[in-house]
């Protein structure tokens, strides 16, 4: 086959695109997964979180989260007995590398944060084109091929879980590792939590231990007064957590 220089130059970009798609691989199919049989949420046990930042690192690696933005992060609280409702909070680099030791006199604990995969999510409500949607198995996702990048959803999320990905210029957030959970795996953050503080929960599965846990523990969601139907359940949640 004879190729002129002009033809070669025309072919190169196409070849580059093709090669990139070869490198990306074919998404694994999950033929036995039925969306209607699941209703996903997560359980976070604050008493077990040690603030190691493994979840943040695992999430960033698994999902190629851009530097400076977070699909999940960990906050450290210091609640003084003088002021129970206005705690001092820090989260250096989202708690990715753990927390530097500081001496404070108050009550201390860590709170991992992530998208709450709300059943009545404000972000889904405001998306002008429906690029943000809730799946039949209860996961709030963003279709980045459809998102306009208007950032209304970022404003509407009461938990600060969304950001605009500077590479794709589309809204981004936790997907609850949808590519993993639909194949019977757990999320990257749960997989890498050394103390089991994070547990993926299938609320439609009667055998899931979440049901017994919810019955026997003091479990709360964040900002319940906003009635978002949040599905990330916190055990031992202090009243000062925002």
């Amino acid at each position: 086959m004879n190729l002129t220089r002009r033809q070669l130059l025309l072919l190169l970009p196409a070849a580059a695109v093709a090669w990139e798609s070869v490198l990306a691989g074919t998404p694994e199919a999950s033929p036995n997964y039925k969306m209607t049989e699941h209703w996903w949420g997560m359980l976070i046990d604050i008493s077990k979180c040690i603030g190691c930042g493994n979840c943040v690192r695992a999430c960033a690696t698994e999902n190629d989260v851009p530097e400076g933005y977070f699909r999940t992060w960990v906050e450290r609280y210091d609640v003084s007995d003088d002021d129970l409702v206005n705690p001092a909070v820090d989260s250096p680099d989202g708690g990715k590398e753990g927390f530097p030791l500081i001496q404070r006199g108050g009550k201390n604990f860590f709170v991992p944060k992530m998208c709450n995969h709300c059943a009545d999510s404000p972000c889904t409500q405001v998306c002008p084109v429906g690029a943000t949607f809730i799946t039949p198995d209860g996961v709030v996702l963003v279709d980045k091929k459809y998102c306009l990048g208007c950032r209304y959803c970022i404003q509407a999320c009461p938990y600060g879980c969304r950001f605009l990905n500077p590479k794709t210029n589309t809204a981004e957030k936790c997907t609850l590792c949808y590519h993993r959970i639909t194949k019977g795996l757990t999320t990257a953050c749960c997989e890498n939590c050394p103390t089991g503080a994070r547990q993926l929960a299938d609320l439609k599965n009667p055998k899931d231990p979440i049901h017994a846990f919810l019955r026997t523990h003091d479990v709360q969601v964040l900002k319940p007064y906003l009635a978002t139907g949040a599905k990330v359940f916190y055990n031992d949640l202090d009243g000062s957590v925002r």
């Binding site: 409500q125 405001v126 084109v129 998102c147 306009l148 990048g149 209304y152």
Partner: peptide, 20 residues
């Protein structure tokens, strides 16, 4: 907009619950 070329989608497939 992050993707101004998609703004026309608001006319084609508007999400009715969205004020925008």
């Amino acid at each position: 907009l992050g993707h101004p070329e998609r703004s026309f989608e608001m006319y084609l497939t508007p999400h009715r619950t969205s004020a925008m």
